[in-house]
Amino acid sequence: MSACSSTSDMESPNESPSFQASRIDRELIRLTQEGLPLCPHPYHKLGEQLGLSADEVMCRLQRMLDAGVIRRIAAVPNHYRLGYKFNGMTVWNVPDELISELGPRVGELRCVSHCYHRPRHLPHWPYNLFAMVHGRSQDEVDKHIQTIKDLLGEHNRGNEVLFSKRILKKTGLRLAAGG
């Protein structure tokens, strides 16, 4: 770990262009999408598969964490299996000039797992704020939606909730080589 130096050519998360993952980074990403090996030295094992030392594997992961390419290293829970079977994608139409103030307040709610500003497509799609809510019952989800409604108050100019009916595909990130 001591051999790691955070590269200084990575600008702030929202300004910098996409991180240019090298071929080895991509290989590493691909391998870790299956999950880290459950053995005492998992990074050594990944290194063996890639022809790298464990230190280099950890350095590469640390660099990607620093660059924001990796958000976190985690035990990734399966919400469905934990009983959070009800998820609603709530979408809101809030004034553009207020979104940078309202967005973070919605995002920090306990019940919200993702919260994004996305573009409107008028006239078909007037919504600019997306918040995913999860619950163990429909009731719980309804309460979460009401919480967001209350928070936005008069700034809510219309909203909808899109419940998921089926998961049709769900895979880890795949980076296609080249463009």
């Binding site: 996409s18 870790t32 299956e34 924001g68 390419v69 985690a74 990734v76 829970p77 399966n78 990130l173």
Partner: peptide, 24 residues
Amino acid sequence: LRFLQEASVISRIGPVFNHKRAGS
């Protein structure tokens, strides 16, 4: 962790990538 993984309570242990920054 093996139990949690086999029971699908966790989908995996590992890095979560920021799709936006890992590409487009």
